[in-house]
Simulated assay, not measured.
Amino acid sequence: MKIVVIGGTGLVGSQVVSNLEEHGHDAVAAAPQTGVNTLTGEGLAEVLEGAQAVVDLSNSPSFAEEDVTSFFRTSTKNLLDAEAEAGVQHHVILSIVGADGIDSGYMRAKLVQEDLVKASGSGWSILRSTQFLEFLASIADTAEADGVVHIAPVRFQPIASADVARFVARTAVGEPLNGTIEIAGPETFGFDEIVRTYLASKDDPREVRADPSATYFGAPLQDGELVPHGEAQLGEVSYEQWRKAQA
């Protein structure tokens, strides 16, 4: 089965490609550096020839709301149009748990992407994931002010990117869901608790302060927005397993 992975050279995409190849599929990593650009349409017709499924893991280089909305609207439309021409039967995207709740321009842009896929008229699957464990460092850096890391004391259920890649690959080779599933890590933490634990494991001396007014990449947070809203498929990699593997 030929599966084109848009963003196939990134953190999750490269692992998706590896997982698919290990199971005997023809997985093609597509990205600007491989001559495929979903914003301009360059290389799409060629790379989609003979493909049965497409996984879209692309992301905007700018997170400003206007930029990221334009990115997802343009790239998704170009990709869906090219897939229709090529006869691709399954379109898979990775979205975000909380996309319809967190007051963020990026989240609103992801909803635009989701809506375009749902309206495409072809087979589709949407996986909404909780935050990746790999982003704990950038979360801490973004939340720092005057040497103190301010984190909202809400529930947090991060997932290892390796688990995300397995879920994405498994979905891509299956029948289209024509629906949305949520995926998350196997453990739930206090958000400030796990950031504090992570920084301590890196011998990072910064104080982590539980702050109900702290934002999440600039967005206000309510408890429940960073964990699945209902039944979810859970990964296998625990925080400690992930941390040891990183070390």
Rank of each mutant, 00 (worst) to 15 (best):
A247L: 11
A169D: 09
V28E: 03
E85P: 00
A172I: 01
E46A: 13
Q222D: 12
A200S: 15
L44N: 06
S129W: 02
G10S: 15
K202H: 04
R243W: 00
P205G: 07
V12F: 03
D204E: 09
K202I: 00
R166E: 13
L177E: 07
E187G: 08
I181Y: 06
F132R: 08
E182P: 10
E182R: 11
L80A: 12
P186I: 07
S138G: 00
S58K: 01
S58V: 02
G7E: 04
R209D: 08
V148D: 08
A51P: 05
L39C: 03
P186A: 09
P32S: 09
T38H: 04
T76K: 09
H23R: 14
A30G: 07
A53L: 03
S129I: 02
L11S: 12
E187A: 09
S120P: 02
S122V: 14
S70M: 01
L48T: 09
V208M: 02
A51D: 03
E22M: 10
P176H: 04
L226R: 12
L177P: 08
A214I: 01
N19I: 13
I159D: 08
A184V: 02
H150L: 07
K77E: 14
D163F: 06
N59P: 01
A64D: 15
R155Y: 02
G218W: 00
M1V: 11
V54S: 07
G8F: 00
I159M: 11
Q52D: 14
I3E: 05
E175V: 10
A162M: 00
V173F: 02
H23T: 14
A172W: 03
S120Y: 01
V54Q: 05
G43M: 06
D103R: 13
T34E: 05
S18N: 13
E193G: 07
E225A: 07
F132N: 08
R73S: 13
S95Y: 06
E85D: 15
D211E: 11
R155W: 04
V47D: 02
S129N: 11
D146P: 04
A64S: 10
I6H: 03
R243Y: 00
S60C: 09
S238K: 06
E49G: 11
Q241R: 11
W242Q: 11
V4K: 03
A219F: 05
M107A: 14
P212C: 06
A143F: 01
V195C: 12
F132A: 12
L11M: 12
F135T: 15
V173G: 06
A64R: 14
F217S: 08
H25G: 03
A162P: 00
R73P: 02
H229D: 10
P205V: 08
V164I: 15
N37L: 04
E65V: 11
L44H: 08
L133M: 15
G8S: 10
W242Y: 15
G24P: 08
V4I: 07
I93M: 08
M1S: 14
